[in-house]
Nucleic acid binder design. Structure first.
Ligand SMILES: [Mn+2]
Ligand SMILES: [Mn+2]
Ligand SMILES: [Zn+2]
Ligand SMILES: [Zn+2]
Lengths: 150, 150
DNA sequence: ATGCTAATTAACAATTGATGTGACTTATGG
DNA sequence: CCATAAGTCACATCAATTGTTAATTAGCAT
């Protein structure tokens, strides 16, 4: 492990940025301060840092993987309107317990809060969604009729 | 909306399958019962069914999107060893509340349990991981020293 | 200071999961 | 029957990443 300028830069950029940036966005920022830095190196270095436990990957299943230098136990709030990710600390939250009755050995529980951030709420008060972000869950209702198979 | 045999097949396959299959795996299964069915149609139809609220997409940020006909409110357990996804019902779990103090309007909370499933625990008792599945978190220690940029 | 070797870079190819397109054929449902 | 939605084929295209190879640079141990 050599302490190269690009590794330092990336490390610093991450730690002075709480937006959970993507590799691409880090590339853009880094390129300003270090023109010529390669995207390949960004991916490379981020991967290494992650392996070293220096940062965690946050993959929400939408677009690109986001990188988080905050290794403390915390959760994330995702704004479904603008896509922003914010840290949430539910230290006081009741600990969800694994139902080992189901035979699962739960080692970790991921929690993601979805909704609209402050800014999006204010700017678009009563309005509809500006641009719906791809989402996973969702609880809606019916429409098609179920056809029995047998 | 025409009630075509491929739509029925897909709908039925989903409802008699609790493995949260991917589009590809559904394609394989469907192909046996209906040789010639096209993968394009699988994606097409799954997308339509999702739009209609007939099934939900479960994207865990690892491989492919999984499809879940269970529209009831429930959580998922992911085996980090074999990748299997199982339903978990935490009906009795204390409701996580949104910290609206942070200015976030939380509309939904996603919870994913990680660990090892029954089968993986038994088959590989004290052993190491068979094949580590891509994961996000992890908490270890430092190595690089933080360098102030300005 | 010198040199071994790791790291970076460029310039690609390749992968995975998914969606877009257009032409053609089939077959649902009124 | 027949309009037209739906399916199929045979692609192309996409985004986000990872692999590869070769050439160049530069950290740092001695
Ligand atoms: Mn975070
Ligand atoms: Mn489920
Ligand atoms: Zn927002
Ligand atoms: Zn398992």
């Amino acid at each position: 492990m050599k302490l190269t300028p690009q590794r330092q830069l990336l490390f610093n950029l991450l730690h002075e940025n709480d937006s959970h940036p993507t590799a691409e966005s880090l590339f853009e920022i880094a390129s300003k301060q270090m023109p010529g830095i390669s995207l390949r190196t960004i991916y490379q270095t981020l991967g290494e840092l992650a392996e070293m436990g220096e940062l965690q990957l946050v993959d929400l299943g939408n677009g690109a993987t986001r990188f988080d230098p905050n290794m403390g136990e915390h959760q994330h709030f995702v704004c479904d309107s603008c896509g922003a990710i914010h840290d949430v600390d539910i230290t006081s939250a009741p600990r969800l317990r694994a139902g080992s009755a189901d035979g699962f050995a739960v080692e970790e529980i991921g929690v993601v809060f979805h909704g609209r951030c402050n800014r999006c709420n204010l700017s678009n008060q009563g309005k509809l969604e500006s641009q719906q972000i791809k989402r996973s869950p969702g609880l809606q209702a019916k429409k098609i009729k179920r056809v029995k198979s047998n």
